[in-house]
Design a binder for these strands. Sequence first.
DNA 1: CTGAAAGCGCTAACAC
DNA 2: GTGTTAGCGCTTTCAG
Lengths: 335, 335
Amino acid sequence: MVTLKQLAEQLNVSVSTVSKALHNSEEISKDTIQRVKELAKHLNYQPNRMALSLKSNKTKTLGVIIPNVLNHFFAKALYAIEMEATKQGYNIITCLSNELLSKEKESLLLLSNGSVDGFIMSIAEETQVENNMEHISAILNKDIPVVLFDRVAEDLDCDKVIIDDFGASYEATKHLLKEGRKHIVHISDIDELSVGKLRKNGYLKAIEEDANYKNDPIFINIGKEDDLEVVIDDLFKSHKNVDGIISSDNTSGVVAQHKALKLGYNIPEKLSIIGFSDDNVLAFTDPKLSTISQHTMDIGKATVELMIERLNQKNSTKHETKTIKTKLILRGTTK
Amino acid sequence: MVTLKQLAEQLNVSVSTVSKALHNSEEISKDTIQRVKELAKHLNYQPNRMALSLKSNKTKTLGVIIPNVLNHFFAKALYAIEMEATKQGYNIITCLSNELLSKEKESLLLLSNGSVDGFIMSIAEETQVENNMEHISAILNKDIPVVLFDRVAEDLDCDKVIIDDFGASYEATKHLLKEGRKHIVHISDIDELSVGKLRKNGYLKAIEEDANYKNDPIFINIGKEDDLEVVIDDLFKSHKNVDGIISSDNTSGVVAQHKALKLGYNIPEKLSIIGFSDDNVLAFTDPKLSTISQHTMDIGKATVELMIERLNQKNSTKHETKTIKTKLILRGTTK
DNA sequence: CTGAAAGCGCTAACAC
DNA sequence: GTGTTAGCGCTTTCAG
């Protein structure tokens, strides 16, 4: 890499003159500025990032910790975060916790040595299950800003971006009730997560509120070890009269639809399905799956925006929780 | 952040003593070493990453440029790369080119200021179409190592990790021929890419070689603007006698299977399908889709390994191209 | 055994 | 208008 020193030597001026010239300092003569800039351009001079960071104590880099990139929601969130960060002049260092507390801890620790200006993260499953947030508090105590998205923790005092999981699920269930469904099942593979619990409760509330709904709620939890397809097969065996399904994750709604069609259920006449899916699965469904759209791009964008705001006014203005609107999109699997 | 200077002041020794003590230097007394280490631990001392990088001229960070994280193949590759990099003590800065030459250029440029020790990348579609590789050559000329994976470019002299796209497609087509298929269609949404061309040619070669195969090859290209489902509907309308499908991407095979089943095709008796899909789509298929497995985890791992090797012996040992084995996995959509 | 000093590349206050 | 100097946090050579 070309350095200021090299430019200075070639031009027979001092390093500081070169530095000032490149910053268009008023102190430097027009002529010198031009000579410096020409040579800099000619030699493709780029200021050394590490030196700048060391000096300014800013890295212009954000640490992003994602539980699982193979999950479409998180891939899309990462996409949105990268876009917005780039737009704002930040790079992102990506770490994947793979739902593990240990990996999450390690990433946080390793990057808190001046590698990043702040962390954007969604909490790993294991972390939520064990409810162990000390590693995150530790970061906050060091005055490194953290913005949580999607999977957040009540007790952490930091900025957050969430959706109204409870409300979205409540509304979707209401819709099924309005259709006159009498045996509505809630399927989830994220029962242990904050968002999973909220979604489940939204469903529950809608059902309990409905005086005309006489049956018990039915919860199908897909465990870590379970085979999604087997569980859903079993569901249809044990609850032949199911007429409504709400799925809390990206895939189980789609699989349920396939299985139901294969078993001869008439969708949406006899059975309605609503999923928390992104549109990447739509091509695999017929009729097209009705979904709760999470506006993942907006989530990612808001997360970065909150972070940048925080970085620009490090004084302790109150922490903010931004709720991104969801939207119930009715397609072919609902009446 | 706690610095050496602060430790030194508290202990009434010099900065260099502290530094040496933390590195277990023989020059320093056992006693001092212990005192230093205790305080360091107590105050959670971590060496400032930027200062280390500036001094050593190494960042222990890799730039990873991915064309599209919403594509499952790349999400998985990113997953593998992150895993292996972390294991080897490297962080990754992730950039998404979104298939754009401009974005790819920009990422490369912005990170070539000492932010990373090397680049791992798969080339953007636009870059391949325009066959403009100057920005990548420029990086190589600066002596920053680059390892390309999946989508590579002939003329770039650097390490590469690929699969045998031609061979894999050839073998899969051979299988369909052995089943006695007479109207085999090749579907692709990556016709413009290096890998897309190779896969197409593998199919073509297999068909041309087969003396018993009398029909013309049939190529279905999904363009950027096309609706995949519409194109596939049209395919079945215009080629009612299709009895074999090979898909070069992750999704079109699945969609073709759905459409075919809906139209009453008997799979695999009357129609066989093989996709270049990952197992994330299997839950959406019945019978289960037969696929060419790319061993994406191995690809990512090999990519990082090549990079680390290169970084550790910067002398110009010959550049290497590693070919990861693929595997034809026959499931329910083939006989 | 410990410390002073130089230097990685850069900026900025302060001379001249 | 330009140069000198100090310092960001660290390692490392050289002195003591």
